[in-house]
């Protein structure tokens, strides 16, 4: 989505009623984030709406980007937010070989997740793999992609294929048009 460098468009203040709507939407989409919602967007603070190219809008608090949204799709967290609250989002892991493709903006393919280095939600997962969840994720679910051997997430986006299907097929595009480390949105600075 943000392969090219982008420049921020017009910045405007978010109405308080809309801001309330965003809050509830965020807590609905990411129930794990609910305990932290007051730290991320305090009730009294004024959120900013920044228009980006291709009908993407970015919500920011002061100059920290928080969530972005393409038209009326799901609210997706900015990667800096994911890095600060890693455990609050549904996440899956890709193997090492896939990292360089993801970081150059390629669509995420299923083999990167189904190979030995990748992790998908697994009801029988033990100990450290438990954080990748137990329940299968559906198509259209917003998800954070982590990488094998790395601590931080590298991609955020909406699944194009449910995790169950992935395990079955082990082929095809899982996610395209995500927000990855080093893309235009990442490099954009707000001030």
């Amino acid at each position: 989505m943000f392969k090219k460098d982008i420049t921020a468009g017009q910045k405007s203040k978010v109405k308080s009623s809309v801001q309330r709507g965003i809050r509830t939407k965020v807590t609905e989409t990411y129930p794990l984030l609910a305990p932290h919602i007051d730290e991320i967007m305090p009730k009294k603070e004024q959120l900013d709406l920044i228009k980006l190219p291709d009908r993407v809008s970015l919500y920011a608090l002061h100059s920290t980007p928080l969530f972005f949204q393409h038209m009326d799709d799901a609210l997706l967290p900015h990667l800096t937010l994911v890095h600060r609250y890693p455990s609050c989002f549904p996440r899956i892991r890709i193997d090492r070989g896939a990292i360089r493709f993801v970081l150059s903006g390629a669509a995420l393919m299923a083999p990167g997740l189904t190979s030995t280095g990748g992790r998908l939600p697994n009801p029988n997962a033990k100990a450290e793999d438990e954080k990748y969840g137990k329940e299968e994720l559906e198509t259209g679910a917003p998800v954070v992609i982590e990488a094998e051997g790395k601590e931080h997430a590298c991609l955020v986006g909406v699944l194009k294929m449910g995790t169950g299907e992935m395990k079955e097929k082990k082929k095809g595009v899982v996610m395209d048009a995500g927000h990855y480390l080093g893309d235009g949105l990442w490099k954009m600075h707000l001030d």
Binding site: H83, L103, G182
Partner: peptide, 20 residues
């Protein structure tokens, strides 16, 4: 809740987290 909030260091050269 016991959830960690991390302060992340970003590389001053390429802006990614250093591990990337």
């Amino acid at each position: 809740s016991g959830l960690m909030v991390r302060n992340v260091v970003y590389c001053g050269v390429c802006t990614l987290p250093p591990e990337y």
